[in-house]
């Protein structure tokens, strides 16, 4: 999609989007396959989630049942924020260690596919960790019982929350990885920008725990911010990573010459 806006890929937009999606799927499967072979991300992120969970349990075990519904959502999404920053940093450090991101950028791969694939992988890993956190919170805090009682809603909520985080985070983690930037900047950028999505997630979680009707409304709003984050992220990915070609003339000519 960004190709159609910025670059000289002078083909029909629909076929272009299909190319991007197919390539994104290939890249995502490739990442997951590598992950399945060494489990590095899954194990470190899961371990980190456990550590955060234990820290939360120790810090808030004395909390009364009445105040727990106010605290549990915060615990869940803070944990997502921490684990998410770690996961994103690691995913792109790995790309940078072997410089594979550059190989993808010079290959005939839609840039937006790279974005979508990385966001998807981040989302999957983050989702796994968050479900673990949810499980742990349910065991530790009685007020978190609705998580277990309404598993479908919980799953939808956690998925949407993680998606929001991945959508915003992938753009900036990739940008930092390609500019040989400093990873400390990732947290600096990530937390302020993901705050609105996390706030929506927080509100939705609270209404879920309290059994409010408004849960679906909040979930819808969270989904809307996700869509916004993904559209903007996909749109900005190529300009942020490689910049735009200064001139576009000659593009159509080249496209015609090409078969």
């Amino acid at each position: 999609m960004s190709e159609a806006l910025w670059g000289p890929g002078a083909r029909a937009k629909t076929s272009l989007d299909m190319v991007a999606l197919r390539q994104a799927w290939l890249l995502a499967v490739n990442d997951l396959r590598q992950e399945a072979r060494d489990l590095e991300l899954i194990l470190t992120s899961t371990f980190f989630s456990l550590v955060v969970l234990i820290m939360l349990g120790m810090s808030f075990s004395a909390l009364g049942v009445s105040s727990q519904p106010l605290a549990v959502p915060g615990m869940l999404w803070l944990s997502v924020a921490f684990v998410g920053a770690l996961t994103l940093g690691r995913i792109f450090t790995r790309e940078r260690e072997f410089d594979t991101l550059r190989a993808l950028l010079v290959a005939p791969v839609e840039r937006v596919s790279i974005y979508l694939a990385k966001a998807f992988v981040t989302m999957v890993i983050l989702l796994g960790c968050s479900l673990l956190t949810v499980l742990g919170l349910t065991l530790l805090f009685p007020a978190a019982q609705p998580f277990a009682d309404r598993p479908l809603e919980t799953f939808a909520l956690v998925t949407m929350g993680c998606t929001a985080y991945a959508g915003v985070g992938t753009l900036f983690a990739a940008g930092l990885a390609s500019s040989s930037g400093k990873n400390v900047l990732l947290s600096v950028i990530l937390y302020p920008l993901t705050m609105p999505s996390l706030l929506f997630a927080l509100v939705a979680t609270r209404s879920l725990l309290e059994g409010h009707e408004s849960f679906t409304t909040y979930l819808g709003q969270l989904t809307a911010t996700n869509v916004l984050a993904f559209v903007v992220g996909a749109w900005l990915f190529e300009p942020v990573l490689v910049g735009v070609p200064q001139k576009r003339r000659g593009a159509a000519r080249a496209a015609r010459r090409r078969r």
Binding site: V168, G175, L176, S179, L185, L193, V232, V240
Partner: peptide, 24 residues
């Protein structure tokens, strides 16, 4: 965060900062 990225980011981070400003 924008100002921090502009000051401490490596070469090429001016585009990253721009992305941040747009998101902001």
């Amino acid at each position: 965060a924008y100002v921090l990225v502009r000051h401490y980011g490596a070469a090429g981070s001016e585009r990253l900062a721009a992305g941040l400003a747009i998101f902001g």
